Simulated assay, not measured.
Amino acid sequence: MKAVVFKDVGNLVLEERAEPKILEDTDVLLEVTLTTICSSDIHIKKGFVPRAVKNTVLGHEFVGKIKEVGKAVKKFKIGDRVAVNCETFCGECFYCKKGYVNNCTDKNGGWALGCRIDGGQGEYVRIPFGDNCLTKIPDSVTDEEALFTGDLLSTGYWACKIGEISKEDTVVVIGAGPTGLCTMMCAKLFEPKKIIAIDIDDNRLNLAKENGYADIILNSSRDNIKDEILKLTDKRGADKVLEVAGGKDTFNISLDIAHPNATVVLVAMYEENQILPLPNIYGKNLIIKFGGVDGIYCDKIMKYIEEKKINSTPIITHRMDFENIMEAFDIFENKKDGVIKIAIKMK
């Protein structure tokens, strides 16, 4: 089969690989039907993910059709259409039992797919712990509608949950890229007073506004963000700030625009160390939460998709065939043609 392989820092190749096989009774073998490229794949390529294993097939955001199941798999059968969780988890360790699946202690647990074990940018993939890590796609939901269930939407929903968004909140989302947009979609489910999107790109901001993901948009390349947020919040600042951009200054912006005793959730994966400006924020009594997504809400997210309460297809700006996936990487990495997200059809 053909697959995109991380050979070394700066070197991704499309090469022929052997088809995977069932190794454990809890495994599922999946025929990938639709996949995509994530910013985390670019982080791996650039060498910002030290735990990434060379010679691994990339991809942790995809959907497919079940080709084979291990003897212990109970929830799924051959032919089922499923969305794949970006994390694989055993369900039995200390962290899994508490819902902290990002920190599953199994050797194949946490963010393993497309990082430490072969992922979904190939024609077939082995999914460990299939019963835990797959979500059945209803007949009324298309592959495109389900594509972001296990990663982008899971990340956005997790961020909103740990941010404890309420109906009285003014929520600011810094970053209107794919993850930021999905975070806004999920934030709307919690019915906050208003959602404000911040980015440096008008195309992304307009997409957020036109699709109803955000109520107000601000461009930080020309707007004085702190002044604008104060104007919009009776001079207090934001109740909840979800920092999804991971830019050079967005960490400090998130701390600056939150009002005292507010909550700041750091969703972004930073490429460089960030400095906590303790003298500047002393007395603000901020609650700061951060980490990798615990992807335990996929069933709930799929239900929202089925009920049309979430629609992430507008963020798909490009559609390409798998044979052109290396071109897709170039477009996505270099943000050509206003790309937000690329859906890559396998056949």
Rank of each mutant, 00 (worst) to 15 (best):
K7G: 01
E19K: 15
L23R: 06
D25V: 05
L29N: 02
L34R: 07
I44K: 08
V53I: 14
N55G: 06
G59P: 11
G59F: 11
R81V: 10
Y95R: 09
C96G: 12
C96T: 13
G99F: 11
N102M: 00
K107Q: 08
C115K: 13
I117Y: 07
G119W: 03
Y124A: 08
L153M: 14
S154K: 02
T155I: 04
A159E: 05
T179C: 00
M184F: 04
K193E: 10
A197D: 04
L205I: 11
L205R: 12
G212V: 13
Y213S: 09
I216M: 06
N219F: 02
R222Y: 13
N224T: 04
K231C: 06
T233R: 10
T233I: 07
K235D: 15
G237N: 05
G246N: 14
G246S: 12
T250L: 04
L255G: 01
H259L: 01
V265K: 03
M269C: 10
E271W: 03
I275G: 00
P277E: 13
N285D: 08
I287T: 15
F290V: 04
G291V: 03
G292V: 00
D294C: 15
G295K: 14
C298R: 13
K303D: 15
K303G: 12
Y304D: 06
E306V: 00
I315V: 12
D321R: 14
I344R: 13
